[in-house]
Computed example of a mutant assay.
Amino acid sequence: MKEFTVHLEDRPGTLGKLCRALSDQGVNIVAFQSNPDEKGKSTFRLVTDNPNATEAVLESEHTTHTETQVAEAKLPSRSGALAGAAAKLGEGNININYAYAGIEPGTNAPVVIFGVADAGQASKILDQVAAAAA
């Protein structure tokens, strides 16, 4: 799964403008996280349902951004689901650098995005966790 990390000015309306530009192109934001930094900027991480259109919008908006692969977990909405997924990643010697949640389009099922060094291996582990939970 592709994640975009966008660096925005930390001021009113900036995030709304970018989200509106994505929406105007039919891009659905599946999950996001936004945090201010010490330099008057915000770091906005997002996963969308259409990475190609997202890239085009980010380019047209002249944003400073990067792309990276992340692992997605479709977890059931019940006690212990996140604990189990995080524990399995740890057993696989995969460190979780950051994580955030969203909603899967179409089903509204919870999804968790994991920023890890080896997204491919993490995805395999998380697929096994999801299959065991089903």
Rank of each mutant, 00 (worst) to 15 (best):
K2H: 09
K2L: 14
E3L: 13
E3H: 10
F4H: 01
T5N: 10
T5F: 03
R11V: 03
G13W: 06
L15M: 10
K17F: 11
K17S: 12
C19I: 12
R20D: 02
D24C: 09
Q25T: 03
G26Y: 03
G26T: 03
G26M: 04
V27R: 02
I29S: 05
I29W: 05
A31S: 10
F32Y: 11
N35R: 15
P36K: 15
P36F: 11
E38A: 12
K39S: 14
K41F: 05
S42L: 12
S42N: 05
F44H: 08
L46W: 04
L46T: 03
L46Y: 05
V47L: 14
D49S: 15
N50A: 15
N50C: 09
P51S: 07
P51N: 05
A53K: 14
A56Y: 06
A56C: 00
V57W: 09
E61Q: 15
H62D: 05
T64V: 14
H65N: 04
E67I: 12
E67N: 09
T68S: 15
E72V: 14
A73R: 02
K74N: 07
K74M: 06
K74H: 08
L75A: 08
P76E: 10
S77I: 06
R78Q: 08
S79Y: 10
S79H: 12
L82D: 00
A83S: 13
A83C: 06
A83I: 02
G84D: 07
A85G: 06
A85P: 00
A86H: 01
A86T: 08
A87Q: 13
L89A: 03
L89P: 01
G90A: 07
E91C: 02
E91M: 09
N93Q: 13
I94L: 04
N95D: 06
I96M: 07
I96Y: 06
N97V: 05
N97F: 05
Y98T: 09
A99G: 03
Y100F: 15
A101I: 08
A101V: 08
A101F: 10
A101Q: 12
G102F: 07
I103H: 07
E104W: 09
G106I: 12
G106P: 04
T107D: 04
T107W: 09
N108V: 01
A109K: 14
P110S: 15
V112E: 02
I113K: 13
G115W: 00
G115I: 08
D118H: 08
A119H: 01
A122I: 00
S123P: 00
S123D: 06
S123C: 04
K124V: 06
I125P: 01
L126C: 11
Q128H: 11
Q128C: 03
A132G: 06
A132V: 01
A134Y: 00
